[in-house]
Design a binder for these strands. Structure first.
Lengths: 348, 348
DNA sequence: GCCTGAAGGTGAATCGGTTCATCATGGAGG
DNA sequence: CCTCCATGATGAACCGATTCACCTTCAGGC
């Protein structure tokens, strides 16, 4: 068990293959890339030599000449969130299908770290970058990136930025969630979680206010709670809401993770989601169906999001001059038990 | 919004920087790598030129010469499993701290795809490979890899393979889980989930049988159910178990994901985990605490696993001749409600 | 005034492929 | 028998860095 490691092998290069096959390096290269200029017998000799010597192609060396690395960078905020894990998985699969590799980095939603990671990606010379920008990212940074590399943005749409992007239909999703609550009879509905600087949250909040307005309900800022996008965040938020003079009867949450926290908080307060209080989330992470009661949520298909981002990137790389495209994934309300129950209605 | 994409910029190379600073390419290179052979004024001129021209270092070109790519490959079975997502996240962070990048690929536990991904990693010339081998992986493949590149294996320990590896203490973890069940009074305990060819499962199963033996309980093969590592797998398994003549009163599950399925299945059968039946999982994924009732489980610290794998890799790269090391992460039984309740005891 | 050595730079080879312009060969056509 | 062309193969430049051996200067010592 203490066997020492062998020294790194001396590599077999294309030159060795060429020598073994009695051809020039140029011929060997052409043979491997299936050029029609090389005769069948010669090609076979080269392939045999490859086999015999155990040659492995050096993509890195090749890319120096061809200026293509077949590598795509993905910078995401945090992989612990199952939503992002699914998204990453989707992107990886789609890229692998087209023989691109994925270089992964996380920014922890921190501008400095994001800047470092972007820099690294540039130095690694990725062919393109898929980015889920950290909160408060300057459009200027993105504009600069865009000038150098194909760029696909993950959720936020920066107005006036000519970048491909893929996101979800936050507006319709939010509207559907609220309509559902209205139909159940809710009037005081909290908006829970996330921070004001998050672009996605801004869009959902806007749509929330719009929906209220259409119902002739005024916007009550005390029902709108900031919090980290964690279970703890939701847990704390619902406690704050329940202490209000006139507490809400329902909560529309910025994400499923927060909704889970809200449900935990309700239970701690001896209330039950779907019975005493309605809870709706956003994302439809796999756990949403498992929770007890099942979480009503806006489905976001994270895997599809990742696949589409990859697809958009591949498209951009193969046809750089196409007009900018953004894919808005349709959102769907998945009704489960956390909202289905009728509500004990406080007099109002 | 239809702004066309700019053509890829013509790159600023070190030569351009050198010209602008009025020095040779060699000097520019040395200046940037902080060689003491370059005087301070010259270094500053170079740095200014870098700034002025917007030069970005080309790691890819450099690596051709230096034979280090500062890139580590990670091949994992599937990123949708939160356990693996956490692990990946841990590895990525640790690597990033040391300015290595992570190239990610998934094998879907498929031997062919794994082979392709390994090949890709070799072609990309990663400095090292962290691999969670697919089931039924030939030791020979690993041995071959090992001869070419630093390799860190993820969970399985292949006997006689001189590779660094990191895994968990499956034996002790399993033993603790079973002892806990014995203390609660259980005698008929099912082993649920996974497939026979999975090395990790083999170890846990062995330890399970060992524990039974120590208690003088015979091994009953009908209590040992194969299944995919999914919620559905657990769901189906518990149904099968409940139909037995003499059903078990507890289930020790191969992973949390399966345990969740078991709990769902129980609920569908109008039973409640922690009241009518004891359920124990393995992994302690974040959802385990949120589930209702909370899942008793063996904690596996996936993030720590990933961090340690990265650490081992960095160690191997910097000191290739160190003896082989394997890190076994201690396992801990986290007791929550799914097992805490006493059991309605069938006469036996 | 000459020699020595340190300090600071530089030319050129190198890493492992790709690619283009060029060359050798041999068969067809006149 | 000579010319021409198609076919197949090759030499050498190139991509963008690193690195080694060598070169120039100049200060200091005798």
């Amino acid at each position: 068990m203490t066997a020492p490691r062998q020294a790194r092998r001396q590599k077999v290069t294309l030159q060795h293959v060429a020598d073994a096959a009695n051809v020039s390096k140029a011929t060997a290269s052409l043979a491997l890339s299936k050029s029609p200029r090389i005769s069948q017998p010669t090609r076979l000799r080269v392939l045999e030599a490859v086999e015999a010597l155990g040659y492995v192609y050096n993509q890195r060396a090749a890319s120096l000449r061809t200026q293509r690395s077949y590598t795509i960078g993905l910078i995401i905020r945090d992989l612990s969130n199952p939503f992002n894990a699914e998204l990453t998985s989707g992107a990886e699969s789609r890229l692998a299908e087209h023989s691109y590799s994925l270089v992964l980095a996380t920014s922890d939603d921190d501008l400095d770290k994001q800047a470092r990671m972007v820099q690294t990606m540039m130095e690694r010379d990725v062919d393109g970058l898929i980015l889920s920008p950290a909160s408060r990212t300057e459009p200027d940074l993105l504009r600069k990136l865009l000038a150098h590399r194909p760029l696909v943005l993950l959720h936020p749409y920066y107005a006036g930025l000519a970048a491909d992007c893929v996101g979800m239909d936050d507006d319709k999703g939010t509207a559907r969630a609220l309509d559902h609550l209205f139909q159940l009879g809710h009037r005081r509905i909290a908006f829970v979680g996330g921070f004001a600087e998050q672009a996605t949250r801004q869009r959902r909040l806007r749509s929330y206010r719009e929906s209220l307005r259409r119902q002739g309900i005024g916007f009550d800022p005390t029902l709108c709670i900031d919090s980290p996008v964690t279970r703890q965040g939701g847990y704390d938020a619902i406690h704050q809401l329940l202490r209000l003079q006139e507490p809400p009867s329902a909560a529309y949450c910025y994400s499923d993770v927060i909704a889970f926290g809200v449900m935990l908080g309700l239970r701690a307060a001896r209330l039950e989601a779907g019975v005493d209080f309605a809870v709706i989330g956003f994302d439809d992470v796999p756990e949403a169906t498992l929770w007890h009661p099942g979480l009503t949520t806006v489905s976001a298909d994270p895997r599809g999001l990742g696949e589409n981002a990859a697809q958009l990137m591949l498209r951009r790389i193969s046809q750089p001059d196409l007009p900018v495209k953004s894919i808005i994934m349709p959102s769907k309300l998945i009704v489960r038990e956390s909202s289905a129950a009728p509500v004990k209605w406080p007099a109002s």
